[in-house]
Design a protein around this nucleic acid. Structure first.
Lengths: 239, 239
DNA sequence: ACCTGAACACCGTTCAAGT
DNA sequence: ACCTGAACACCGTTCAAGT
């Protein structure tokens, strides 16, 4: 628990033999990679608000203030951890012939990675995604949409919309995946049914048992990709 | 600054005249409405992380612990403030004849309200939107999409996608609207141009001066609504 | 019913000091 | 170069007490 190592030997006679020699290569105990890996683990267990500098330091058997040598804010930690999640997205090559199938695959891959780390989607909406892994993913989407005929502002809008849709969907899904979500959903259904006069359409159509998030997602993505295809066909060249 | 009122009179002779009589109607100093209004103001000034119980209490000339009589967590405050933002969305009636025009109007109205309170979109992605104003907005969207021919799972997926797109877009936009965003954007552009080997498509197409968020948004929304129209036409009836 | 005040167990971050 | 330890200015939340 408390970070201690045998360093300053007490004056015990013959104590040399009991002490480790100073390591020759002096490899730093902490590295960015170790810190980020530990941060992802802590985040997986306790969510974003469970990641404190002290708790992370504890997990690394180190003092909280030591982290500041490798990282300048807590926010940096979050950004690094988030990019690590983007790094888990299967690269899945690229040109399969159909840009639409490629983009759908990218979206599905990102969704899977974000779902594996339920804290990540909520974070991704509000932070600029500029890490190397996030950029690599962006590059793939841009390339596929360019093949669809999008360019300039349309291309940027399309790519942004794709990310926004995936990340936003997972964030919503993750918000409903906590323990006790079933009870919460039942309470919502009761509330809607009881307010059928104020929310008639919701009472009739929004009430549901366990939602099927996966087809929810693919169906929305389908609609979306269809719209993008039309956008590409409508404006074949544009700066 | 510090919350004080003349209550317990010191034993000054004739001091009765100097003290206010105990107010007859004993109206509570704090109400939920006052608290929420103040919270929105504090959030507008300092963002989500600038809202602390103590700071909010200060703004209301009250002790921090007094807030807990009216509200049970800080999270409640955030949810209430968020629903207040949804309350700012112009109701804009409904049936204009074209469901698509109606949904586009709802999306634009929500975007405007969220942009007025830059902290709100990032919050909206990760919290269930169950306040009365959020539900009223949902009801409008559901009703319009039902007129488009969507039903059952398609309707829920479509409505969720509409909200997700709007809220996610504003969150991204808000993240780029801080002071110094221009410098940040320039740095990003430099970085992308310098990494043209790794991100060729980004270097060619993602680099831009000041982004035009509004047309960015409407173009994405257009593509999206087009896809939803197809979804409605493809599956005219479905539970 | 509504507000105060003290208290508890935390936070992120700094900075001088050690090795 | 890298880590420690003390310190500062905060946090959310509880609970008994006042009126």
């Amino acid at each position: 628990m408390s970070p201690k190592r045998a360093q300053s030997g007490d004056a015990v006679p013959g104590g040399v033999w009991l002490r480790e020699p100073r390591p020759a290569s002096r490899a730093p105990a902490l590295t960015r990679e170790r810190i980020v890996a530990a941060a992802v683990e802590v985040l997986d267990q306790g969510g974003a608000e469970g990641l404190s500098m002290r708790r992370l330091a504890d997990a690394l058997d180190v003092h909280a203030t030591s982290l500041y040598w490798h990282v300048s804010h807590r926010d940096d930690l979050l950004d690094l951890a988030l990019d690590a999640v983007f790094g888990e997205v299967a690269a899945s090559g690229g040109a399969s012939g159909s840009w639409r199938a490629d983009v759908a695959a990218f979206m599905g891959g990102l969704r899977a990675a974000l779902l594996r780390h339920p804290w990540s989607a909520a974070l991704a909406v509000s932070r600029p995604l500029l890490g190397p892994n996030a950029l690599a993913h962006s590059e793939s989407v841009y390339a596929a949409l360019a093949r669809a005929g999008l360019a300039g502002l349309d291309l940027r809008a399309g790519a942004a919309a794709v990310s926004t849709f995936v990340i936003g969907s997972v964030a919503a899904e993750a918000a409903w995946r906590h323990p006790g979500a079933a009870a919460a959903r039942a309470a919502v259904n009761d509330h809607l049914r009881g307010s059928a006069d104020r929310y008639p359409t919701l009472a009739a159509h929004a009430v549901t048992g366990e939602e099927d998030w996966a087809t929810h997602f693919t169906r929305g993505a389908d609609a979306f990709l269809h719209g993008l295809a039309v956008l590409g066909a409508d404006r074949p060249e544009q700066g």
